[in-house]
Design a binder for these strands. Sequence first.
DNA 1: TATTGTTATACTCTATAACTATA
DNA 2: TATAGTTATAGAGTATAACAATA
Lengths: 130, 130
Amino acid sequence: MIQLFHSHRRAFSSIAAEAELGPSQLQLLMSIKPERAAPMSELADALYCDASYITSLVDKLEARGLLERRPSPGDRRVKLIALTPEGEAMRAQLMQRVFQPPSSIAALSEADRNALRDILTRALADAPAA
Amino acid sequence: MIQLFHSHRRAFSSIAAEAELGPSQLQLLMSIKPERAAPMSELADALYCDASYITSLVDKLEARGLLERRPSPGDRRVKLIALTPEGEAMRAQLMQRVFQPPSSIAALSEADRNALRDILTRALADAPAA
DNA sequence: TATTGTTATACTCTATAACTATA
DNA sequence: TATAGTTATAGAGTATAACAATA
């Protein structure tokens, strides 16, 4: 399984690089749901990083027109991060590639793939925090 | 499966941090088999990084007494990297932790774990390069 | 002339600390 | 007084380029 992890990490980095994004920028882009703008503090939690780093990531992605800062109606300290239409399109395209199963998994029989899905679903359902 | 990847990556980083190693230093330590000293160029290939970076990683691990540079009998340009006894002990201990299955997998039934092992074995046997 | 490893250096990633505005 | 985000800055991680020794 660790072999799969390594190949996934390399694939993730290379998908990001082809889009001229750093891996963290890609991760941030994927963390923003199109239907719900998120406060920056929430994004820092999602990426397990400092808030100041979110500022710099958002700066870069905003400069490229992929997302934008919006005021929060309830609290004027908060800024909500929302995808632009371009950001939404790029996110969808990149996520499709990130979630594509690696060739080793795709080459399995349908029965194996289904069994794999079921086992992993059970694993994560029983221990959601792991 | 990607959720598992993320949790593994965090676990890997924290195992390295507890041993006061960077993640790449841990990866390098794991790449050196106790029974076979490896040339630095080979380690650069294994870590997908530049040779000059291997130099700096080896410097740090050598300073901690975990490995050592040895001349290569056949080619005097080459240096072979070998684990010291301390390095071998630390490697064994850390690898045991790295390969420990996450709790979500450990909590599965024995039948599920066996099925998972068999499926992944098939996947990697059929497509070794992926 | 090509290759292994090293050195010097620069660039990217990420966190810490001090700050501003708002609560 | 405490919190959300920003700015300035410092540190780690990693690559590139020039170099020395050997092939």
